[in-house]
C-alpha cells in the first residue's frame, strides 16, 4: 500500500534563506502523524510549503500518488534584486492542493475578521466542491455545538478558542482527505485545550488522517501513530508511538543541559 502523503527530500524556505532541508515525511492512509519540535525551527514553514503557500526549492510532494509540485530544482537566482516573482512560474498551487483534499488549518489564523461565522462556513466547502467531494453542512455544529449560537457573530468578535473551532470546522467542511492541524491548542486556556483536544480525538475517531503539530507531548502521544521530531530544519528522528518519551526527556534530548 502506498502512502497517502509522501514528502521526499523536500527543501524550502523564504528566498534566499533556506529554512528546512531534505525532509522526508510519510503519512499512511488512515494514520495520524505527529510533528514535534522547538519553536522557530521551521515546522510551520514546512507545512506552509506542503500546502503550497510557498514554493518548495526541491524535492517531491506526492499526495495519493499525484505529484502536487513541479518536479525538479527551483531556478537558481543569480541576481539579488531582480523580481523573480514575475520571472519564475510558481511551482505549486495552493488551490490545487486544497481541492485534492490536503487541508491545512493554519496556526492561530484570524480567519476573516469581518465575515460572520455563517458566511465563513458558507465559503468553506469551496475546496470540497472543487474536488468533487461531498461535504456535510451540519458537521461544524456536531463538532462544536457552541458555534451554532454564534452564527451571526463576526469572526473578530469570537474568542481565541471559538476562532480555533471555526478554523477547524472550516477545515472539516472542505472534506479533508488529510488534515494538517498546526498547533490547534496554541495559547488557549487549559479548559479550552481539553475541549479542542476532544474535538481532534473525534475527528481522528472518524478516521480522518491528520498531521498534528503540538507542543504537548502527552497530547501527541495519545493521538499519533508516529512522532516526527523536527529540529534545525530537518526531521531528526521518527518515533513509533510506543517509543515516545515524556516531554522533559524529549526536550533534554533536543537541547541538552544548559551549560
Amino acid at each position: 500500500m502506498s502512502a497517502l502523503l509522501k514528502v521526499e527530500r523536500l527543501s524550502g524556505g523564504y528566498e534566499p534563506v533556506q529554512i528546512f532541508k531534505d525532509v522526508d515525511l510519510e503519512v499512511e492512509h488512515g494514520a495520524c502523524a505527529g510533528l514535534f519540535g522547538p519553536n522557530g525551527h521551521g515546522k510551520t514553514t514546512l507545512l506552509r510549503t506542503i500546502s503550497g503557500l510557498i514554493d518548495p526549492w526541491s524535492g517531491n510532494i506526492l499526495f495519493d500518488g499525484v505529484q502536487l509540485n513541479t518536479p525538479g530544482e527551483r531556478r537558481t537566482r543569480r541576481s539579488r534584486n531582480l523580481n523573480y516573482d514575475i520571472l519564475v512560474r510558481r511551482r505549486m498551487d495552493p488551490k490545487k492542493v486544497a481541492r485534492a483534499g490536503l487541508i491545512h488549518v493554519a496556526q492561530g489564523s484570524p480567519l476573516f475578521p469581518e465575515l460572520t461565522v455563517a458566511e465563513t462556513l458558507s465559503i468553506a466547502p469551496a475546496a470540497a466542491r472543487g474536488g468533487g467531494r461531498p461535504s456535510d453542512p451540519e458537521l461544524p455544529f456536531t463538532l462544536f455545538p457552541q458555534l451554532k449560537e454564534r452564527r451571526q457573530s463576526k469572526a473578530r468578535f469570537l474568542s481565541g478558542g471559538e476562532r480555533q473551532m471555526l478554523a477547524i470546522a472550516c477545515g472539516m467542511l472542505a472534506a479533508p482527505r488529510l488534515l494538517i492541524l498546526d498547533e490547534p491548542t496554541l495559547g488557549l486556556s487549559p479548559k479550552l485545550r481539553l475541549e479542542l483536544a476532544d474535538a481532534v480525538h473525534a475527528i481522528r475517531g472518524a478516521g480522518v488522517p491528520i498531521i498534528l503539530v503540538d507542543q504537548d507531548v502527552g497530547f501527541l502521544r495519545d493521538l499519533v501513530d508516529k512522532l516526527h521530531v523536527f529540529d534545525h530544519g530537518s526531521i531528526s528522528r521518527v518515533l513509533p508511538r510506543a517509543d515516545i518519551p515524556d516531554h522533559e526527556t524529549l526536550m533534554a534530548d533536543l537541547f541538552g543541559k544548559a551549560h
Binding site: S51, L53, P94, K95, A98, S109, I123, A124, A127
Partner: peptide
C-alpha cells in the same frame, strides 16, 4: 470579501 481580509486563509480554503 474573504480574500480581502485574509489572503492566506482564503488560499488554504481553495479559493
Amino acid at each position: 470579501r474573504a480574500v480581502a481580509q485574509n489572503r492566506e486563509a482564503a488560499q488554504l480554503m481553495g479559493l
